[in-house]
Design a binder for these strands. Structure first.
Length: 287
DNA sequence: CCCCAGGTCGTCA
DNA sequence: TGACGACATGGG
């Protein structure tokens, strides 16, 4: 992988990066397509623009070389060896092989824990389009305004920004019954009952147990938070779509079958889940 | 009016 | 533990 610094952008080459599957795989909710090869997102209170070139290189705008080294290099998962991860997944079975090859270039995004936690609490029993809408309204109301290329964007609110939020406020932007869950999460973070950053240093099982103390966080939401923001790459979120893959395509009948399968995937099981989830969703539940 | 969406909670056996 | 209905909201 080569990183070149230009005046207006940073160019990444020699690394496969598929923008559409990365940003539209349901792992994140604040990236939007400007056109087929360009996405605009808000990450860690910054507007970031990414565009893909003919030669397959990717240009990242509005990120300084320093910010890239300190933050976005990890955010985009560039510290991993994707060739090795992909090879390993392809060797597991035919279904994974198909999913991984089809969406080669999809990357796992290492997100901010608080944003990730609130987002996936909102995601439960909800559809991605509506999840994005709710999160956008949350940011408009409680985040900080960001001007970028004549666009008005909003940062994801910090815990302190949500300190005095009332149930009615959240209901009015469409959170529904999840409103009280968000309030509980904010309270536990502000009280120091949950220290998200520390969970990165803790073992998977223990970190999951801590997260589940928050009302509205069960196994699935906890696994998403662990995978997408706390570097627990072995976590494998079991949602309706993934269960569909495991039941219909793999033919697993029991909880034991599924547990055994996930364990067999090893330390990068989460990457397998990312590909399988995206694959089944993009192909209408068929293979 | 039905069912579904990146589920979880409370309750009851 | 495991099953099951309830839970807001909007779209198909």
């Amino acid at each position: 992988m080569q990183i070149k610094e230009y005046n207006k952008f940073i160019k990444i080459s020699g690394e496969s990066f598929d923008l559409a599957s990365t940003f539209e795989s349901g792992q994140c909710f604040r990236w939007n397509a400007i056109d087929k090869d360009t996405y605009l997102g808000v990450v860690n209170s910054k507007a970031v623009l990414i565009t893909k070139n003919e030669d397959q290189s990717v240009d990242i705008y509005n990120v300084s070389p320093d910010e890239f080294k300190k933050y976005f290099y990890w955010y985009f998962d560039f510290d991993k060896d994707y060739n090795q991860i992909i090879d390993e997944l392809i060797g597991k079975d035919k279904i994974l092989q198909k999913a991984v090859l089809k969406y080669n270039g999809m990357r796992l995004l290492n997100q901010e824990p608080f944003e990730c936690m609130i987002s996936f609490i909102i995601s439960q029993n909800n559809n991605i389009k509506r999840i994005k809408g709710i999160i956008e309204r949350l940011c408009e109301r409680y985040g900080r305004q960001i001007i970028f290329n004549q666009n008005i964007l909003y940062s994801f609110p910090e815990p302190e920004d949500l300190k005095d939020v009332k149930l009615e406020d959240l209901l009015s932007i469409g959170l529904g019954y999840r409103a009280e869950y968000v309030i509980d999460a904010v309270k536990k973070v502000l009280d120091g009952e949950i220290i998200l950053e520390e969970l990165e240093e803790v073992e998977y099982e223990q970190a999951k147990k801590e997260l589940k103390k928050i009302k509205g966080i069960g196994d699935k939401v906890a696994d998403c938070i662990l995978l997408y923001s706390l570097k627990k790459y072995n976590s494998f979120p079991l949602d309706v779509w993934t269960k569909r893959v495991l039941n219909n395509l793999y033919g697993f009948k029991s909880k034991y079958d599924i547990e055994t399968f996930i364990k067999s995937l090893g330390e990068y099981a989460g990457y397998a889940q990312l590909f399988l989830f995206h694959y089944i969703r993009m192909n209408g539940g068929m293979l």
